[in-house]
Amino acid sequence: MLKLKSKEKLFKMLFCLCAFVSAAAVALICIFMFANGFPAMAENGFFKFLFGEEWRPTAGQFGILPMITGSICVTAGAIIFGVPLGLMCAIFLAGFCPKKLYKVLKPAIDLLAGIPSVVYGYFGLMAIVPIMQDIFGGNGKGILTASILLGFMILPTIISVSEASLRAVPNAYYEGSLALGATHEQSMFKTVFPAAGSGIFAGVILGIGRAIGETMAVAMVAGNSAIFPDSLTSNVRTLTTNIILEMGYATGLHRQMLIATGVVLFIFILIINLCFSMLKRKGGKAQ
């Protein structure tokens, strides 16, 4: 009996240990990123790093303001292209789509979520870039191209999270609205959609996190010049692509500054994650 009890305890401890692996991983990631990034930032000067307008590793100038601007621009573009379309499509799936069509469309959207980002990048390079070249001239790469591709890439995230929250709204909301004389469309848009608000917003934030963290696809279609973008078609470099493009050959301070770029991105992501968790909790409570 005693033996059995100790065995039970042993396993409980093992399970608990496994559960803490993810907590330990997050702690380690924070420690390693910050410990490697902050000293370099301090050496270069925080202000000069965050608000410096020149990125010239060979001249020892490490300002990432163009990259921060770039990241914000392409993410904003992705929101403009991806969010309205994604939300409308989620409403379509939850309230309008015939069952037979749903059985085809839903797996297709799941598949979009699973396609590797390099493949998206190639698609952008071979399909979107030539079209942009025809319309705007130049090399066809830049903010607009990256925004369109990213908007496309975040669609599945936004659609599936929003659809799930729309479906989680109690049917009574919808029926009550119909009983008051509203049409099906009005009920979906004015009753069910607002009721699912925080869940949908959480989905949008998740999509934003994806867009700001995307690396490969953006590297292929953004043009990657480390300059301030001055128009929608101007080449742009984001925080993520700055790392992937130069880490391969960087040494010394240059490498540390790239890690520091990662730290800035990481802080952006942590803020986004925090918003997401808070909204999700709020959504969970409301229902």
Binding site: M33, R210, G213, E214, G262
Partner: peptide, 8 residues
Amino acid sequence: LQGIPSII
């Protein structure tokens, strides 16, 4: 962990 981008 799920929200951290792969580059990080």
